[in-house]
Amino acid sequence: MRSLHWFTQVLEVAAALAAAPLFHGWVNQCRAWLQNRSAPPLLQTYRGIRKLFYKDAVIAERASPLFRIAPYVVFATMLTAAAIIPSMGTRLPFSSSADAIALVGLFATARVFLALAAMDIGTAFGTLGARREMMVGFLAEPALLMVVFVASLISMTTSLPAISERLATQALTLSPSLAFTAVAFTMVLLAENGRIPIDNPATHLELTMIHEAMMLEYSARHLALMELAAALKLFNYACIGFALFIPWGTAMGGGGPGALLAAVPILGAKLAVAGAALAVIETVSAKLRVFRAPEFLATAFLFAVLGLLVH
């Protein structure tokens, strides 16, 4: 049984690494279809990343070592996060070493390193991007924490797999507070992954961009790692959403290899639906002005707090 748990653990991380660009590509494809464009192939994200890895890295003259180490740190935090989140099975040996609060902390670490790296060169874009990223982050992070907190209150544990397991096995509790937190979580997901009401992943227009502004000085393998990390982040957020709000179908405590085998296509189906839904949200909503972003996020935060209240 233990070996199965370890296998689940390794499988989850490997799957996250492999499937994250695929999920990214899927969202892009859906978006293109909805917007009447011809869609890029599903594997486009892999191709982009692979191309970047083969290129020569160009680094600004006054870049410090912090700038070079940041992509690795950001990537590593996202990969570690993938090891905590129960996407296929809930019995993850590693997850006892970091609970949901630590997971939020992990995302914060990635954000801080990203922002610091962006400030390192000292260009207008970098600092602008860093400031905006932190502005989005300082409201999105507590909102996410509150979402997790509400789920913890309902299940009386802060360990993410345990939360997921309890929510799935309780006799179908339609907790009203989960409705609020689900809305809050969706808003946080959009903001944290640079999606449309807050940031547009497709634009390079300086007035509006956040994530891309921070990436501007990166090239080649560093950029590849950053893009991979961004894809992983989206994947991780989607999996957190599944774990909290639609936990059914993952391999629970008692389940043997069969349950794990069944969990793989279920996860695939969830991802496909979530990606399509994300594309729909992005297509039907308009991008907000940067100064409307705190309003959006404050709303998310307050919704999460409201979930706490309704509990």
Partner: peptide, 14 residues
Amino acid sequence: GQASYAPVVFAAAV
């Protein structure tokens, strides 16, 4: 069994 945090393992993993 409600909450656990193992910074050494966590840091080692990162």
